[in-house]
Each structure stands twice: as C-alpha cells, then as structure tokens.
Amino acid sequence: MVKPSAAIGRERLDLLDPREMSRLGGIELVTQGIVEGFLSGLHRSPRRGFSVEFAEHRAYQMGDELRYVDWKLLARTDRLYVKQYEEETNLRAMMVLDTSRSMDWTGDAEARLTKLAYARLLTASLALILLRQRDATGLITFDDTIRHVVPPRARLAHWRQILATLGRAEPGVRTAAEPALRRVVGHLRRRGLVVFVSDLLIDRKLTIKALRFLRHRGHQVLVLHILDPAEQSLEGAVEVRYRDPESGESVVLRPQEWATAYDRTLKEAMSAWRMGLRGHGISYEVITTDTPFGIALRQALVQATSVA
C-alpha cells in the first residue's frame, strides 16, 4: 500500500516494503527518502562513522586542531598527543552493478521488485550516502560487456549523473563480470572501496579471481548477492519446465520433489561464494529483494565498515 505523502515525512521510508517504496516516485525521490530515513536512524547506532579510521598517536605540534587532542591520554600521561587517522581524505568508491538478463526477474511481479530494480535503488542509495560523506563514488554497469562507466567524483551533484546512468541501465543478455571488475582498477588509483552488486549467476571462479585481483590491489571489496525469495525455494506440485532467460537452457522437474535438493544446492553455492570470497578478505552479503532498503543498507554498510 502506498503511503500518503504526509505520512512519508513521519516514517522511516527506508524500512518500507521495497515494492511499496518504489511506487512513491522516481528513483531520485525514492533514493533520497531511503537515505534520509536511513541516516535519521543512524544516530542511534553505536557506529558513528566508517570512512575515517584511527591509526596512531603523535606528539602535538603547534597548529594541530584541538579536536584531535586525545584528552584521555593527556590525563594518564600528562603529555599532549593528537590522534592520527589512516585516511584523512575521503574514500574513493566504485559501484559495480550487474545488469544482465537474469537480474531483470522477479518471482512475483505484484509483490516484489525485479532484482535489477532493487539493485538500482540500493546502488543509488549507497552512492548517495557515500557522496554525502564526500567520498568519491563511481559506477560501472555491465552484462556480458561493460555498458556504462561513471568515474568516481566526490561532488554531491555527481549523484545525479549516477542516477541517470542507473536509469539508462537496460537488462542485457548474458553476464561476464571479469572485464567490469578489471576496469575498476583504472578508476581507483588509490586504495578504495568496490561494491559489487550482482545475482552472482556468473562464472564463480573467474569472478572470484577478478575480485581477488582487486583485493590484491589494496581495495576493499564488498559483494552484495541479490536474490529473489522465489529463487531461494522451489514451490508447486505440477511439473514445470524452468528456462534460463539468459542461456535458454531449460530443465523439467516437479518443484515439490526437488525443493530440498535445490535448497541444498543453493546453500552450497552460496557457501562456495562466501568461502571463496572471505578467504581473501572480501565481504559477502546476501540480500533478498523483499528486504527493506534500510536493513539492506545497514547490512551493506556494516560489511563496508568492517572491510574499511
């Protein structure tokens, strides 16, 4: 149910049902609503920041800002020290979005967004949050080739360019993530953050290899695995021919009979992704398309904070 606009202001829009949320307006309005809601709830979180991390102390020198003086240390040692942070400047982040045909699917068009629509909003929200922190944020969309590239910029107005690119992102045919991930290197010369948003119906070995490459280059990598709830379990008693919209490959089976085996296979696949990624310090998070964006953002940003 779409909330009346009067109610929108009073409620956490980021916690609304994604499908309902998407009906509130265009991507810009919706994304701002999500981010506002998300940030308004953030002050209650024990975490206050994520891109600027404490590294070491150094002796106070004339000209240092008093706000960086470590008063507790002064009390214990009777000397003045200031906190030294690892990255004094803002982060450079690159969003990599999978726009292949498999992403343009939902198990229930009435109740849920397609994976691509959900990923667009999620990516836009993440980008807005990063840009508001003055982090340079860019975007690459790809299917079997790289479709669009938006270089990272820290200006808030850059967000509209990202939004425009996301709006132009049409579902492709097949998926090949490796070229897109290698392209990231060219846009993140310093160590940065790479957020890879995909349903991961791609070649796992090649993809992990590319992600590992990014990791070796010193980038923090976050993989957001987008799943439709209908992909998580098979239902129905009648025999069905399941066809892959990308490859056209099909298989005939009775969902009821195969549900458990499929569930096991899916968990094994997700486990393989998780093990393959985390083994190299790459964060991995599964997000289903019925998850409110606020929760999804929190999942994503917690992971991003941890890797950063």
Partner: peptide
Amino acid sequence: ARREPSTVDFPAVQYLTNTARVH
C-alpha cells in the same frame, strides 16, 4: 503427465541443473 509442462523463466536454472545432475 510428462507431456506438456508449463514453461517459466527462472534465472537460477544452473542450480537446478546442478541439482538434477546430482540427484
């Protein structure tokens, strides 16, 4: 019953194929 199953699009067919191969 095996004659004319209805066809639905399902992106995760690769998982089904893997499942079918095993089971």
